[in-house]
Each structure stands twice: as structure tokens, then as C-alpha cells.
């Protein structure tokens, strides 16, 4: 199976690798994993509590090229978006952008989960009530 050029580009030049201060009130952290392939993905966002704009996003992913590319793309996309806009990102958008083959769709699902998990973590810190969608995605099996 060949990776698309976009996947290779993100894999070779991942955007926004790194981490943010987990303890910062304005930082939301999402840690998700895909047990079938053993990938783990951490996505963090620094969110302005007034404007609800995601001012910074970092990721660190241990996994295959598609998982790295999906999370790299996710950080690129959420930067500058509001929390609500970021929550609207669907894994299918990532699949389309990166031309992921069917066997790699779970990588994009992981990235979407990571976005939702990070935002839900931030909301929890900010004392906001968990929204229906956030609690749905953080609910375990």
C-alpha cells in the first residue's frame, strides 16, 4: 500500500509536534489510542477562555504514518478555530484530505477522538458542563 503525497509530507514534516503544559487551566489534553494497531495519540490545545479560539495546538503520536499525518493535520486545522468549529471536524474530512485507504480510516477516527477528548478536558477544567457530544465521545465502550 502506498501512502499519498500528503501523508508523506506530514510524516516527514509533522506540524506542531510537542506538548503544552498539562496543568495550565487553558490547556485541554486528549490522549487516545487504537488498540488494534497499538497507536497512541496525544493532542493538546491552548484555548482562549474569552474568545473560545484555539490559539495553539500540539501533538505527539506514536504510530504509523497515517496516524502521525492525521494528528498533524488535525493540529493544523484546529489552530485559529473556535472550540465549536473544531468539534465540527469529522474524521471523513481527514480521510478526504489525506486520501487515506480504508484500512487506515481508524487513524482519522483517532484524530477526531483526540480533538473531542482535548476539548472535553478543557471544558471540564473550565467548569463547563459536559455537552452531549463530548460525553458521548469520552464514554468508554
Amino acid at each position: 500500500m502506498a501512502y499519498s503525497d500528503k501523508v508523506i509530507d506530514h510524516y516527514n514534516n509533522p506540524r506542531n509536534v510537542g506538548s503544552l503544559d498539562k496543568k495550565d487551566q487553558n490547556v485541554g489534553t486528549g490522549l487516545v489510542g487504537a488498540p488494534e494497531c497499538g497507536d497512541v495519540m496525544k493532542l493538546q490545545m491552548k484555548i482562549n477562555p474569552e474568545t473560545r479560539v484555539i490559539e495553539d495546538a500540539k501533538f505527539k503520536t506514536f504510530g504509523c504514518g497515517s496516524a502521525i499525518a492525521s494528528s498533524s493535520l488535525a493540529t493544523e486545522w484546529v489552530r485559529g478555530k473556535t472550540v465549536e468549529e473544531a468539534l465540527a471536524i469529522k474524521n471523513t474530512d481527514i480521510v478526504r484530505e489525506l486520501s487515506l485507504p480504508p484500512v487506515k480510516i481508524h487513524c482519522s477516527v483517532l484524530a477526531e477522538d483526540a480533538i473531542k477528548a482535548a476539548i472535553s478536558d478543557w471544558k471540564k477544567k473550565a467548569g463547563e458542563e459536559q455537552t452531549a457530544e463530548a460525553s458521548a465521545t469520552s464514554a468508554h465502550s
Binding site: L31, P35, I105
Partner: peptide, 24 residues
């Protein structure tokens, strides 16, 4: 019980933490 591909298999958070740290 186990599916290939798109299904979500949630791992317990402590395991994820541990695996992430080991990876780091």
C-alpha cells in the same frame, strides 16, 4: 467482539498513560 477497521476500541486511560510514557 473485535472488529477490523473503523470501530472504536477504547483502551483504559491508565493503560494509555503508561504506554504513552513508555513510548516517550
Amino acid at each position: 467482539v473485535r472488529k477490523e477497521g473503523t470501530t472504536k476500541q477504547q483502551a483504559p486511560p491508565e493503560l494509555l498513560e503508561e504506554v504513552f510514557e513508555l513510548n516517550e
